[in-house]
Design a protein around this nucleic acid. Structure first.
Lengths: 208, 208
DNA sequence: CGCTGCCTTGACACGCCTCAACGAGCGTGG
DNA sequence: CCACGCTCGTTGAGGCGTGTCAAGGCAGCG
């Protein structure tokens, strides 16, 4: 799929479950005021809408951020797997629980951290996730977001995103330009952001 | 359990899954700065930590807000159910997906709404949820939170919680004192808060 | 060449936080 | 029985963080 296209809209009851193979997508909501809130980013390996298999109706929309490769899996296939393969069901469930953990972290991050730490924390998370699926090398990874998108992720205005980024750059923690992130001083960034990846449950899946 | 006690702490790997029968509990995180963020409220009928059954380790803590009645279910029982009863697994999964939807709504709420609407939205949600489990009558329900707690839910300071509440009271939308909420003008409150309960997936479970 | 999208900057206003103090209710102990 | 200390709600003053508005620059592209 091309960049900036809706995979699914709020209220849909799609017949397929989507899985990101390549590229970047996001979950978002549009509020009555017209403002957008991005509530999750989906990277290769992430399911977009396992919700649908269970809940039926989407309570948010999903769109691509960049050109992406997306796999569609018929809902009936998922249903079948759930009925017959407890282990796979468990894995699916596991995936949604990790999503949930990430949401909690974002919520705490947004509610109780100053904007620079919040932003730093976000980049730490993306780095950890991208690295976990082999999409980061030497502190570098591709992140096709504009500053406006970032604002919708972090809940701040574009102007403030811009200024906060400049501060992180001046602190020599990271660079972000041309859709590429470069982590300059990983240790100091992690320390500054107070980043603890436990909520991502990356580990070696020993807990599954 | 008595009020204000931890059911589970971050990092625990408890042997039981907890279910709230009576009272109120919350999920929360303490940030390194010492600030608390409450990321969910658990009312009668809510599971506290199905996470544990799948993920193993808690990435947040859970505490009671009021005296509560809590049921403990051995983890092994849950495991057993998952292995042998796809329908029950599906129901558990359903529950965590609803939690997730609520988190997304809180996130959008916190990031992109002014504080008065955010607060109004929160009360709408609690009313809807309490009503759904028969804990609300005539626009009244019990909510054992202090203004400080509310601040940790909404991501604002106690002082600002206080002032925002006064505004909602002056608008004659609702009252909240002595741990009791009274919705004065439900229609106007819902309109003001731009509340749409779809994300709670209450319905009649037709989508399950 | 003139779009258009995105980043950047400045000025200004306001929302919200912090600090500080006070009052009301309430349980506890003298 | 009253004094005390606690928690919680309330208020005021002042300052900083962020949002808004507006303008300009730069690169890509038709």
């Amino acid at each position: 799929m091309r960049a900036r296209q809706d995979l699914i809209s709020e209220g849909d009851r799609p017949e397929h479950v989507h899985l990101v193979m390549e590229g970047l997508a996001c979950r978002y909501k549009i509020l009555p005021s017209g403002r957008r809130s991005i509530v999750a980013l989906l990277i290769p390996g992430d399911f977009c809408d396992l919700n649908v298999a269970i809940l039926g109706e989407m309570d948010h929309a999903i769109a691509t951020m960049s050109d992406s490769r997306i796999v569609q899996i018929p809902r009936s296939t998922i249903d079948e797997l759930i009925k017959t393969h407890p282990n796979i069901t468990r894995a699916f469930w596991w995936a949604t629980l990790v999503d949930e953990g990430t949401l909690r972290e974002w919520l705490a991050n947004m509610g109780r951290r100053p904007s620079d730490k919040q932003m730093a924390h976000f980049f730490c998370e993306m780095f950890a996730r991208m690295a976990a699926v082999g999409r980061a090398r030497k502190g570098r990874f591709f992140l096709p977001l504009t500053q406006e998108d970032l604002g919708d992720v972090l809940g701040m205005s574009t102007v403030h995103v811009n200024r906060t980024m400049q501060r992180l750059r001046e602190m020599e923690l990271l660079d972000f330009s041309d859709h590429e992130v470069l982590i300059r001083k990983p240790d100091r960034l992690i320390e500054f952001a107070e980043f603890d990846p436990n909520y991502l449950h990356l580990g070696f899946r020993e807990d599954a």
